Computed example of a mutant assay.
Amino acid sequence: MSNAPGLSRRQLLSTTFAAAGAVVVGAAATAPAQAAPPRPRNWARSTSQNGWPVVDGAKVASHRVEGSDARITLAAGAVSTVLLHVLRRFHYEVGAVGRGDLIGHRTTRAVVAAFESNYLSGTAVAIRPNFYPVGSAGNFFTGEMLVIRDILAECDGVVRWGGDDRDHPSEGHFQIDVPPGDTRLDRLARTFEEWADQPDRGPGTMIDLLNARRRSAAKDLRARQRPF
């Protein structure tokens, strides 16, 4: 079959590609604009989102995550005991953490999501924020999610996971989710401290994640806590 009169094969192909390009450009020009990422705002309150007082560097302490060379700065006492337990289980069962992988207390008041204000009180942690940025979801495999849900159930509502934030999921974020003075926090911290003296309890020990009782507790807590 001959080409159209006056057009060589090269000219015909060039004309076809140019027309196709025009369609693509036209489609792009009429496509809806992508929403701009949310802009940070200044957190001006004297307390963080979870009700804890915003503190300066004199009221927090640096801690090493046992079993790793990672360090993190957190509020002292029961807060650090509980969050370090969470980090140790994550380190052993989800993904090893190392130097520079963790963010704890900070003094920068710029936040995108309200839960980020909890870093100001030293009551929240961010694990590898570049791996699990705010707004990104579905970063963990099914087995890893079983561990995360089990960790949360073990904390019995005292800790909340940023992956359950409906508007700004942050899958590396864990925070204390009870106000100062809540007896559940101290009780949980004492439990974790007691486990430290028991070789068959706590982070680094064998845990049956498919145990019916543990799975039921994890599902019940998820129903109570989700969404933000």
Rank of each mutant, 00 (worst) to 15 (best):
S2K: 10
M206D: 15
V65A: 02
L146W: 04
R89N: 07
T81P: 00
S46E: 15
R166G: 00
H168A: 10
V55L: 12
L120H: 07
G95E: 15
A96N: 04
F228N: 10
L210N: 14
F131A: 13
P133Y: 02
S8M: 06
G157V: 06
P40H: 04
Q34C: 05
R10V: 06
A22R: 02
T15K: 14
N211H: 15
W52L: 09
P179K: 14
T107Y: 04
S46P: 01
A114T: 10
R39S: 13
L12Q: 15
P129H: 01
R222Y: 09
A76V: 09
N42K: 11
A114C: 01
Q198H: 12
F140P: 01
A4Q: 09
A29M: 14
G26N: 11
V54D: 07
N42F: 14
A61E: 14
S117M: 04
V60L: 11
Y132R: 08
A31S: 13
E193Q: 12
V79A: 04
A113M: 10
V134C: 05
V159T: 03
E154Y: 02
A35G: 04
I127N: 07
V23E: 08
F131K: 10
V134R: 11
P37R: 00
H63Y: 15
V79Q: 08
A36T: 05
A223E: 14
T123L: 07
A113G: 12
V79Y: 00
G122S: 07
D182Q: 10
E66T: 12
T81F: 03
R39K: 13
S170W: 14
T123S: 09
P169D: 05
R71P: 00
W161P: 00
L188K: 01
R214M: 07
R64D: 13
T16K: 11
P53T: 11
G51T: 11
P37H: 00
N50K: 07
Q11R: 09
Q11T: 06
E116A: 09
P199N: 05
V97Q: 07
I151N: 06
R149G: 05
R226T: 15
D208K: 10
P179H: 10
L210R: 14
A76W: 00
Y92F: 13
R213N: 14
G122Q: 06
N42R: 12
A44H: 08
E154A: 13
R109Q: 03
V82H: 02
L185K: 08
L102P: 07
A110Q: 15
G181L: 04
G143R: 12
T16P: 00
A31F: 12
G157I: 09
D164V: 03
D69S: 12
P5E: 07
N211P: 04
G157S: 07
N130Q: 14
G51D: 13
P227I: 03
P40T: 02
R166L: 14
G204E: 05
S136M: 11
V23F: 07
T191N: 04
C155D: 11
I148M: 11
P53R: 15
L102V: 03
V65R: 03
V94T: 03
